[in-house]
Design a protein around this nucleic acid. Structure first.
Length: 601
RNA sequence: GGCCCGUUGGUGUAGUUGGCUUAACAUACUGCCCUGUCACGGCAGAGAUCACGGGUUCGAAUCCCGUACGGGUCGCCA
């Protein structure tokens, strides 16, 4: 090694030692006759002093040093003179008196600050990601990610899980997300696909008698990106034989609870994790991934006397619609512009409009003292004090709050108010960044109707077990069938998703047939799995957790790119290597491809 | 594919109801000075045809249209 110690490890216990250090020039302070150098390596920073009276030769070299140069320094660890300690760094009580200095490498002036926290345009950070990684923010996220993954490995190892790799080159199954395709050279015109997840393989592992499998698996989906979606991402994929939902929930809760207390003890985890059905989650929070750090639940007010009689709501009720409300605490102070903004939020999710009712006044005032003058609403002339009080009582609003009411078809009311709840959670700063609120959401619908294909399709994936007692609904009302799929949500993110699988060939074929597969297609695409189910497949189930999202939440980052060393942009490009790129004609010929209509730059 | 936001010296921002801008400020950078700083300090200097293309106008960083790039989001993500 070119160094004997790490910068951040030195403290007053090392005084008197001769050390050799190597690292980057974080900062240089030149006092004309005395130079201070902050030397940085991965472990931290230590101050090095160069005194011309003691060693003029290396002093003059030190004068030439610039930010991010790489240097090797030999020197002695000394206590700092009284009154010059720096409590902000771990090595702040000591400094290195250098007596040898070697420049290992020079550096251009970096395109952005590495030695201080500052906002830098993200595309610039991505282009120079190797410099961005030197910064504290990225380093601490990468470190956190390492700790999380290591904890998971150790935890599952303790529980007798086997870590098993599955192929990256595998068979394309065109349903679900769009596949990334890899052409085969040996079989021209044939393609591998990169796995969207190891789903089928982990089921085959269960059939292979592994019983407890896990993998930190890279997954690939050629779909449009979001803050929490990259074309390649990492899942903790696990599968267990002979399990039921409760076993999975217990395992996941124990894993996450221990992980947080070990890795991010500063975060406040609420336990035990609530378990609620999809139906309940949609009804109470208007989302299948509710942020439970704050309440602000949706309340059904359809049956409040006098409300459904109002003209605006009459037609909604006639068409089997519902009326629901949420309360914005202190919302009576919202400006007209803010109210317009709220209205746009619900409209974006299909609601026809938003009825706002502000109850103005001091929060200490009792609801019973509210007068008509205190009620501000676009429909105030149709409202009575009594009606507003009834609604307020039902939704537990106080004076000073605003009632936000949406009417219409149930799913639109739930989803639009859920979106509004989420929006208000941010706006009113009700999402405590130090809290972690997990929950399990269960009993998702088994099927959803695809308008595009005019066909029922699986909500989760076609290997998800239905609730067997509901199989009789398959012919009459498949939309009412519930699955044995479940999600784990955290602070409004879907952090994990899984299900109890189908382990019987007949049931699997039956459901594949229902979602539109002919016997022939079934054999072609899933024959391997169906065959495997015929040879004593054990009941099994599992879950897959999004490592990127989990780490991003634990790090308090707003998107997963911040926890991925080399992420892609929203348009799926790698700004550092400029991938994807054109390839040589010869490469294409080798794999039997030709490109039509190439757009030249 | 739709909608929304953004793009000004190396970096971060100001300026954006068109004209007091010869585009301002901070920092970084270069040089000089400085022996206890740690976001060291002082002085001086260099550095931007305001993303690109077109239009309106006597006059455009500023208004309009288009394009590119980045971000957010809907669709999409079994």
């Amino acid at each position: 090694m070119l160094k004997t110690h790490n910068c951040g490890e030195l403290d007053s216990a090392s005084v008197g030692e001769e050390v050799t250090l190597a690292g980057w020039v974080n900062r240089r302070r030149d006092h004309g006759g005395l130079i201070f150098l902050d030397l940085r390596d991965r472990s931290g920073i230590v101050q090095v002093t160069f005194d011309p009276d003691k060693n003029e030769a290396i002093y003059s070299v030190a004068e030439e040093l610039r930010s991010e140069w790489v240097v090797k320094i030999e020197g002695s660890v000394s206590s700092r003179p009284d009154g010059t300690n720096n409590p902000n760094i771990s090595s702040g009580e000591i400094e290195i008196h250098a007596h040898k200095l070697e420049v290992l490498n020079k550096s251009l002036n970096p395109p952005f600050y590495i030695n201080e926290e500052s906002d830098v345009d993200e595309s610039l950070r991505l282009e120079y990601r190797y410099l961005d990684l030197r910064r504290d923010r990225m380093y601490s996220n990468i470190l956190l990610r390492h700790n999380v993954v290591k904890f998971i490995r150790d935890f599952l190892d303790d529980q007798n899980f086997l870590e098993i790799e599955t192929p990256i080159l595998m068979k394309s199954t065109p349903e679900g997300a769009r596949d990334y395709l890899v052409p085969s050279r040996v079989y021209p015109g044939h393609f591998f696909a990169l796995p969207q997840s190891p789903q089928q393989l982990k089921q085959l592992l269960m059939i292979g008698g592994i019983e407890k499998y896990f993998q930190i698996a890279r997954c690939f989906r050629d779909e449009d990106l979001r803050a929490d979606r990259q074309p390649e991402f990492t899942q903790l994929d696990l599968e267990i034989s002979f399990v039921e939902e409760a076993d999975i929930f217990e395992l996941v809760e124990e894993l996450f609870t221990n992980l947080v207390s070990e890795i991010t003890p500063e975060l406040e985890l609420a336990g035990p994790f609530p378990i609620m059905t999809y139906e309940e989650s949609m009804d109470r929070f208007g989302s299948d991934k509710p942020d439970l750090r704050f309440s602000m639940e949706l309340t059904d007010i359809t049956n409040i006397n006098g409300l459904s009689q109002m003209d605006v709501f009459q037609s909604v009720i006639d068409e089997n619609g519902i009326i629901k409300a949420i309360v914005a605490p202190g919302g009576s102070k919202f400006s007209r512009r803010e109210i317009t903004e709220l209205t746009e939020v619900v409209r974006s999710r299909g609601a026809k409009g938003l009825l706002t009712v502000a109850i103005e006044g001091d929060a200490q005032t009792s609801l019973s003292d509210v007068k008509m003058d205190d009620i501000k609403s676009p429909l105030s002339k149709y409202l009575t004090v009594g009606l507003v009080k009834d609604i307020a009582a039902k939704v537990e609003a106080s004076v000073g709050d605003m009632l936000l009411i949406v009417a219409g078809e149930r799913s639109i009311v739930d989803e639009s108010l859920g979106e509004l709840r989420n929006f208000l959670g941010d706006k009113l700063e009700m999402k405590d960044p130090n809290k972690l609120n997990f929950a399990f959401i269960t009993e998702f619908p088994l099927f959803q109707w695809s308008k595009e294909r005019e066909q029922w399709e699986s909500t989760h994936h076609p290997f998800t077990s239905p609730k067997l007692e509901e199989m009789h609904l398959l012919d009459e009302s498949p939309g009412d069938m519930r699955s044995r799929a479940y999600d784990c949500v955290l602070n409004g993110y879907e952090i994990a998703s899984g299900s109890i699988r189908i382990h019987e060939r007949e049931l699997q074929e039956n459901l594949l047939r229902f979602i539109g597969y002919s016997q022939e297609e079934m054999e072609g695409r899933f024959g391997h799995l169906l065959n495997a189910l015929s040879y004593g497949a054990p009941p099994h189930g599992g879950i897959a957790a999004g490592i990127d999202r989990l780490v991003a939440v634990l790090a308090g980052e707003p998107n997963i790119r911040e926890v991925i060393p080399f992420p892609k942009t929203q348009t799926s490009q790698d700004l550092l290597t400029k991938a994807p790129s054109l390839v040589d004609v010869q490469q294409l010929q080798d794999i039997g491809l030709s490109i039509n209509d190439i757009v030249e730059e």
